[in-house]
């Protein structure tokens, strides 16, 4: 299934990054960008959007052999654009409508005509929102870090 891996490696990394953003995007973010793109219209389902489970694995001691921790609900979808590109999506949760939009975004990302728009209006926007939320949370968490100091006691 891997198409010429050596040539496409940089592309795969970029696509993984974009797909991670689609998975983190909410329905409204995806919908508002995709409605403005003509190529997004009339896509067909290759696999009907569906909800299912992925068994999450941890590692013994955090760094040893894998074990099965428990399942998570995941929605997935696969679509084909009218122009022929195929898009896939796997996202946490049961929102199959969002999964379908994420699959359309993945397909649009693969078209050189629409990739810049998707990168600018969707990937960058979602990454920016996540980055801001993470920094804000980390600032709150960092304020709970303990600063130890030593009390000098007795004779010196």
């Amino acid at each position: 299934m891997i198409e010429s891996p050596t040539e496409e490696m940089p592309d795969i990394a970029a696509r993984q990054r974009a797909m991670a953003a689609f998975a983190e995007a909410n329905f409204e973010e995806l919908a508002s960008v995709l409605t403005g793109i003509a190529a997004a219209r009339n896509s067909v389902d290759l696999r009907r959007p569906e909800a299912g489970l992925v068994m999450l694995r941890g590692r013994v001691g955090g760094d040893g052999n894998a074990f099965n921790l428990g399942e998570a609900s995941v929605a997935r979808a696969s679509i084909r654009l009218v122009s022929g590109e195929v898009g896939h999506a796997y996202v946490l949760g049961r929102d199959t409508a969002k999964a379908r939009l994420a699959a359309i975004a993945d397909a649009l990302w693969q078209r050189s005509e629409t990739r810049p728009t998707i990168e600018r209006e969707l990937v960058a926007v979602v990454e920016d929102r996540l980055g801001q939320a993470l920094r804000a949370r980390q600032a709150q968490v960092a304020a709970t870090r303990v600063d130890f100091f030593t009390l000098v006691r007795g004779e010196d």
Binding site: G52, L53, R57, R59, Y90
Partner: peptide, 23 residues
Amino acid sequence: YRTTLPRFGYSRPIETSEMAVER
């Protein structure tokens, strides 16, 4: 409820060393 859903597969092992710690 989980018994009503199909299993898509297994995740890659989660790397807890890369956790964004809150505590």
